[in-house]
């Protein structure tokens, strides 16, 4: 690891000030992604700003019924919190589908949504990668791209966002609270992460000096009709090949409300509200779900090794919608897919 200095600020304002003043400074929270990237020399902060002393650890339901998550509440605390399990089972399930118990004990909610891609070319400094070194090219495009994107890619980058939690947050219409030099603002989850375009180095729409302080997730009417289905190379402790966060409300056998976000297929959680809206009023059955999957995946393209995702993704969507419809969410301990 490179040498770096260490600071532990006592307020968000102080942390943001250090971050803004020093272009080589980076925030550290749980450290499970940043320390890994520093060991591979993928990132080289001159100073790390330890924010774990800040008062951002809440997990609470506010007066509007929304879930308020502090940026520093851990993934484990969040997923096992009784209020989260009762009102936002999709979120709890997605968090528990990710990483390992040890990692979830250390990982924070802010760090989770800000984790960097696991693209091999991003990790390997001997290879080109526009995300790590803008202008150097994309090694994955014609290379080892089994894990890579089938939607929303650009000629400059086909990396995917690795977070499971983010996929649930996208489906649940969450908002991210950030604080920085120009004050506080809230960013709709759909606008938080970005597609690579010609600037793959930017994962999200945060500005220099901004810090994530929390995530709020509105109350939802889905009850047991929500599920997180994650398909991967082994049953646990592996990143998604394709994952689906699905939630629906059914009235008299028809879809009254529908939310679907996909993981493992794009540079950000993939969700298209206009497609969801088109399917409201349609009968909640397999034919509808199959048509929905085709519509949501419109324009998907493979890059060779990841061509299988073109087949896997629609099947995963249909299966997740069947689970949501039946009110039988995927169990994250028993991996049998019903």
């Amino acid at each position: 690891m490179m040498r770096f200095a260490y600071q532990k600020p006592e307020s968000v304002a102080q942390a943001a000030a250090v971050l803004e003043a020093d272009p080589a400074a980076q925030i550290i929270a749980g450290g499970t992604n940043l320390v890994d990237l520093m060991k591979y020399d993928v990132t080289r902060p001159g100073t790390i700003i330890d924010i774990t002393g800040l008062d951002l650890k809440t997990i609470a339901v506010d007066e509007t019924g929304a879930l308020q998550l502090g940026a520093l509440a851990t993934n484990a605390e969040t997923a096992y919190h009784p209020e989260v399990q009762a009102g936002w089972p999709l979120l709890a399930s997605a968090i528990l589908a990710g990483a390992s118990p040890q990692l979830r004990n250390a990982a924070t909610n802010g760090g989770n949504i800000l984790q960097r891609t696991r693209c091999y070319y991003f990790y390997d400094r001997a290879e080109p990668c526009n995300k790590r070194r803008p202008g150097s090219g994309c090694g994955a495009l014609e290379g080892v791209n089994r894990m890579h994107a089938i939607l929303g890619e650009s000629p400059d980058c086909i990396a995917v966002h690795p977070s499971d939690m983010a996929v649930a947050l996208a489906a649940l219409d969450a908002e991210v609270s950030v604080e920085g030099p120009s004050g506080k603002r809230r960013i709709a989850f759909a606008d938080f992460h970005r597609l690579p375009g010609d600037r793959p180095e930017a994962d999200n729409t945060m500005e220099r000096g901004e810090i994530v302080t929390g995530i709020s997730v509105p109350a939802n009417p889905f009850g047991p009709h929500q599920t997180y289905l994650k398909l991967r190379d082994r049953l646990s402790y592996a990143f998604a090949l394709v994952s689906v966060a699905a939630a629906m409300r059914i009235e008299e056998g028809s879809i009254a409300q529908l939310r679907v976000a996909l993981g493992g297929v794009a540079h950000k959680p993939w969700r298209r509200k206009e497609v969801e809206a088109q399917f409201v009023g349609r009968p909640a059955n397999r034919d509808t779900f199959t048509a929905f999957a085709a519509a949501l995946l419109e324009g998907a393209t493979g890059h060779g090794q990841n061509d299988f995702k073109l087949e896997l993704a629609p099947r995963a969507i249909v299966r997740a919608l069947e689970q949501a419809c039946a009110g039988t969410p995927q169990d994250q301990a028993c991996k049998v897919v019903l």
Partner: peptide
Amino acid sequence: DHGQCGACTVLVDGKRINSCLTLAVM
């Protein structure tokens, strides 16, 4: 040394974590 195997698991304040991804100073 990258959080992928669990050989480095220790308990910090009673909770299991990967000590390889934990900076002692923190």
